[in-house]
Amino acid sequence: MNTKILLVALAVVCAIQWAVPVWLMQRAQITLAQGSVYRFRTMPIDPLDPFRGRYIALDFEAARVKLRAGGHRFATGERLYAPILVGEDGYARLGLPLPTPPVHGDYLPVRVEWIGDEEIGLRLPFDRYYLDESRTRAVEQAHAQADRSHSEADAHSHAVVRVRNGDALIEELYIDHRPVSAWLRARHSVETGDTR
């Protein structure tokens, strides 16, 4: 094939290969800068993504929504839009998902994962928090210990999420009212006796 044609084709491919990550980055930056802030209660565990590394998988309380009698009949895998409500405790909850985005207020695009007798399980557009591979294990171990010792750490795990036009990103994960990195540092200094 003609070298010029090959170069033009290659230039188009290179442009597309740059456009995808740059578009994702730009959208994420706008959401983080302009999105509304919500706090979602969560419980962390530590799995592995073969490409992106170790992360803290987050099991959100808000992902389970109570069903109403005579309401919409949900199907597993169905893509819907869940309005975000804020409870008296200041944590976010989700309303019953709708087939179209609500006209007013923020919402999350969700997918129905399971359907129970009284509630449904939703897959949220955020489900993980990436950390350095050594730290994710520490978070999981600390949580296991906290669980065994009936600490209230679980109750104080939450993610701060930015939401804008259905785009949602986790801004920070908090454990025991502290950002996870600060919490890990504090825990490390208690374990090693280093109080600097």
Binding site: D49, R52, Y55, Y130, I170
Partner: peptide, 19 residues
């Protein structure tokens, strides 16, 4: 390299696991 770039963008912004 494209896969790695996309993966790291997802990692930096904590995108959900749409493998």
């Amino acid at each position: 390299a494209f896969a790695a770039a996309l993966a790291l963008v997802g990692q930096v912004y904590h995108f959900a696991g749409d493998l």
